[in-house]
């Protein structure tokens, strides 16, 4: 699996072929679907699922403009992945399910890894010191004194445990997709369905199929913000509002959303899935300019 290539080809038809084999491991936090692993995050994007990053960014955790993993997904996004067979719900090996033996082995493994890491890091630190020394000593011709220096360095070198670097893992380690642990998400995620969610999903699926990227548009008073391409590079064009065909919408509501849309320089799309077919009927709103 060449992830770099898969992650890189976000555009074009190649994408589907590349990622067809991959599945996205979806974890839940409470009832919210979240994705943790980097490969899964990329895989989502390749499938045109944007989601929203909700964690602190590792590099600069104390700011809000760029956030990091986990990637929170909309219910529609999970369902879309599930429908195409590309999502799998992560089963976790809870503490209770794990035998004491296995657990103590894991602890032992962790300790060993730490020791090994310490030893390796110590060696690396020593090596770094040596190379610095070598550079400094390069001018000196006296071989004996150089060797003496190196010996002294090796003798006196100390690498305190406290300066060892440790990783604070983002994703849970050791949780794998063994075939028996896989449970493909039911295509009808989330479990509780109602008409409103159904309408929203039909619109989501249709817009996605047409190549648009979608994010949530709560702040704009709509259902989705519709982007012509990856939201990383493009401004949103539309505010999609999902209204079922039968629903009677008061004119004042329509005017309110249209007014809001024109204020943020976006076009409001009224999206109504058709009863029988999979088609969605789109209506855009525009002020007529007549006075």
């Amino acid at each position: 699996m060449d992830l770099t290539a898969a992650g890189g080809s976000a555009t074009g038809r190649k994408r589907d072929a590349d990622t067809a084999a991959r599945v996205v491991g979806v974890d839940t936090c409470g009832s919210t679907p979240v994705v943790w692993r980097m490969a899964d995050v990329k895989c989502c994007r390749d499938a045109g699922v944007v989601g929203s990053l909700v964690g602190s960014l590792a590099r600069q955790p104390r700011q809000n403009s760029r956030l990091g993993r986990p990637l929170e997904l909309l219910d529609e996004e999970v369902r879309l992945l599930a429908e195409s067979g590309r999502a799998v719900l992560l089963l976790r090996a809870e503490g209770a399910g794990e035998s004491e033996d296995a657990h103590s082995q894991r602890v032992k493994k962790h300790q060993e890894d730490l020791e090994q890491s310490y030893a390796e890091q110590r060696a690396l630190a020593l090596q770094e010191k040596k190379s610095i020394l070598q550079r400094v000593m390069a001018e000196k011709k006296d071989e004996d004194s150089v060797r003496e220096h190196f010996e002294a360095l090796e003798r006196n070198f100390s690498f305190p445990r406290s300066s060892m670097a440790v990783q604070l893992c983002t994703a849970q380690a050791g949780l794998s997709y063994h075939a028996d642990e896989r449970s493909f998400l039911a295509a009808s995620w989330p479990l509780c369905q109602d008409e409103r969610l159904e309408t929203r999903f039909s619109v989501f699926r249709d817009l996605r199929r047409r190549g648009f990227y979608l994010t949530s548009a709560g702040k704009f008073g709509g259902d989705y913000l519709v982007y012509p391409g990856d939201p990383l590079r493009f401004h949103a064009h539309f505010i999609a509002l999902c209204i079922s065909m039968e629903a009677l919408t008061p004119l004042s509501d329509v005017l309110a959303i249209a007014r809001l849309g024109s204020n943020v320089k976006k076009t409001v799309l009224l999206c109504s899935p058709q009863e029988s077919e999979e088609d969605v009927i789109y209506t855009s709103l525009q002020w007529s300019g007549m006075v």
Binding site: G7, A10, A165, D230, L232
Partner: peptide, 22 residues
């Protein structure tokens, strides 16, 4: 440009937290 943005984005998101034990 999109490619570049995405690569930067992934590199940033992929970064793991590494701290001194002390």
């Amino acid at each position: 440009r999109l490619q570049q943005s995405l690569e930067e984005h992934w590199a940033l998101i992929a970064e793991e937290r590494v701290e001194r034990l002390g």
